[in-house]
Simulated scan of single mutants.
Amino acid sequence: MCGALLSSPGSVVLGALNGLFVAGLAHFAIGGTAFAIIMIAEAILLAIRLVSLKRVKSIHEAGGVPAIDTPITLSIIWCSLQGALFFFAIRTGSTPLMVLAAAHCMGLVGPLCARNYAAPRLALLLVGLCVAPFVIGAASTGEPLMLALVFLLPGFLLGALQILAQYRSAMLAALGAELINAQRARHDPLTGLLNRHGLEGVMKDLSRNQVFSLVCFDLDGFKPINDRFGHAAGDRLLCEVGERMRNALEEGQVLARIGGDEFLALLPGQGAEATNARIEAVIAAVSDTPYTVDGKALVQIGVTAGFACYPDDATGIAELHVLADRALYAAKKAGKGFGTRYQPSLAA
Rank of each mutant, 00 (worst) to 15 (best):
S7I: 08
G15F: 00
L20P: 06
L20I: 01
A26T: 13
A29F: 07
G31L: 12
G31C: 10
A36Q: 05
L45R: 09
V51Y: 15
S52V: 07
R55T: 09
H60I: 14
H60P: 14
H60D: 15
I76W: 10
I76Y: 12
L85A: 07
F87P: 03
A89N: 08
I90P: 04
G93A: 13
M98V: 04
V99H: 10
L100G: 01
L100Y: 00
L100W: 01
A101H: 07
M106K: 03
N116Q: 05
N116P: 00
Y117F: 04
A118V: 02
P120R: 05
R121T: 04
G128T: 02
G128N: 11
A138F: 00
S140Q: 12
T141C: 06
P144M: 02
L145W: 01
F151H: 08
G155V: 06
Q162P: 01
A165W: 01
Q166K: 13
L179E: 11
N181P: 09
R186C: 14
V202T: 10
M203Y: 00
C216A: 15
D220I: 11
K223P: 08
D227A: 12
A232H: 14
A233H: 14
A233D: 09
E240N: 13
V241F: 02
E243L: 10
R244D: 07
M245L: 15
R246N: 08
R246A: 11
E251K: 12
Q253I: 02
L255V: 01
L266R: 02
P268R: 03
G271R: 09
A274T: 06
N276C: 07
E280A: 02
I283F: 07
D294R: 07
Q300M: 06
G302Q: 05
C309G: 11
P311R: 10
D313K: 12
D313M: 08
H321V: 09
A324G: 09
L328K: 04
K332I: 04
K332S: 06
A334L: 14
A347P: 07
A347D: 12
